[in-house]
Amino acid sequence: MTSEISTVSATVRALIQRNLDTPALLDLIADDVDLVAAGVNSGEMIRVALACENYLGRQLSDTELSRMTSVREIATVLGTDLGA
C-alpha cells in the first residue's frame, strides 16, 4: 500500500485485508473508494463485517452495516481511536 492512498489506521486495513481472498487487492484501493465496485466480493464483505463485530465485541447495527462501503467508512464504524 502506498501512503498516498491511505490515511486511515493500518489496523483497519489489516483487518480488512485478512478477510480478502486476494489481500493484495486492498493495496490498490484508496480509502474512499467503493470496495465492492473495486472487486471485493460479497462473501469477503460479509467476512469483513463479522471481523468488525468480533473486533468491537458486539453486533453491528443495520445502519453501521449499510455504511460499510469503503475503507474509511469501515474505519469510522470501528472508531477513530485505533491508531496508525
Binding site: S42, I46, L50, D62, T63, L65
Partner: peptide, 21 residues
C-alpha cells in the same frame, strides 16, 4: 459463521431496527 449464514444475518439486521426505519 459460514458466508451464507452471515449473509442472512446481516441483510436482515434491519428487522431489529425501529419500525419507522
Amino acid at each position: 459463521c459460514t458466508v451464507p449464514d452471515l449473509a442472512l444475518r446481516f441483510l436482515l439486521r434491519f428487522a431489529t431496527a425501529p419500525q419507522s426505519t
